[in-house]
């Protein structure tokens, strides 16, 4: 099994993801987008960064690159796909997940540690946690505000598709704990299949013990069952 980490021009968390997965003994390799998806791919990471310089909208260009058609096919076949930060923006732009991540309410780039409440513990991305757990993971984005119509968000919530919400230390998803103005404090959501997930916070930056909290490990362990 090999997790393919797809590198676009401007990706910059691809090596972080590779190192974090290696630390968890999960086989992973970086794949240049023009080379296409390797046949032995058993999982896919859309990494963070600034693909195509965020031209037009963050993730807009990468979402329409040819490899994304292969990613969508793989996702439809049940291959686990995780989009992180710019990868989450690519995921929404490509239709893998609903909604859009757009300019932070502050109109600023924000780089800080945040708390997330685990909304479900029965997905492969969250099996390591219990529902309601509060985990600490860093964010680093200028366009992370989750935007979607209230009607569609209500449908997603009814379907239990919200995976993580920004919260305070006690697990309360308050306005103060919402770093970017995301609707209903949404930090991460699931696609049509629960094997597809995107989130703005960086689990790969909260995996190696040398760099701080390791609460992100559980998300990446989703690839263990792939």
């Amino acid at each position: 099994m090999t997790v393919s980490i797809i590198r676009f021009g401007g990706s910059n968390c691809d090596r972080d993801a590779e190192r974090a997965l290696s630390h968890l003994d999960i086989d992973a390799e970086i794949v240049w987008h023009e080379d296409g998806l390797p046949a032995d791919t058993t999982g896919i990471v859309l990494p963070g960064g600034f693909s195509y310089g965020d031209y037009l909208r963050a993730g807009a260009m990468a979402a329409r690159s040819p490899i994304m058609a292969e990613v969508r096919d793989a996702a439809a076949d049940g291959t686990p796909v995780l989009g992180v930060c710019n990868g989450a923006q690519v995921g929404c732009e490509s239709g893998l997940t609903d909604g859009a991540f757009t300019t932070n309410e502050s109109a600023r780039f924000q780089c800080e540690h945040v708390y997330l409440r685990v909304e479900r513990d029965d997905t492969l991305w969250t099996a390591a946690y219990d529902e309601g757990d509060v985990i600490e993971i860093p964010i680093a984005h200028g366009e992370g505000r989750y935007e979607i119509s209230e009607e569609r968000l209500a449908e997603l919530e009814d379907d239990d598709r919200v995976l993580f919400r920004y919260c305070d230390e006690d697990g309360e998803p308050s306005a103060e704990a919402n770093p970017n103005g995301s609707k209903h404090n949404v930090a991460g959501i699931l696609g049509d299949r629960e094997t597809v997930a995107v989130l703005m916070p960086h689990p790969e930056r909260a995996t190696l013990p040398d760099v701080g909290p390791t609460d992100g490990q559980g998300v990446l362990r989703g690839f263990e069952s792939a």
Binding site: A100, T102, E147, I148
Partner: peptide, 9 residues
Amino acid sequence: ERLLANPTI
């Protein structure tokens, strides 16, 4: 429809 606008927003 396909690129310049994002129909969500």
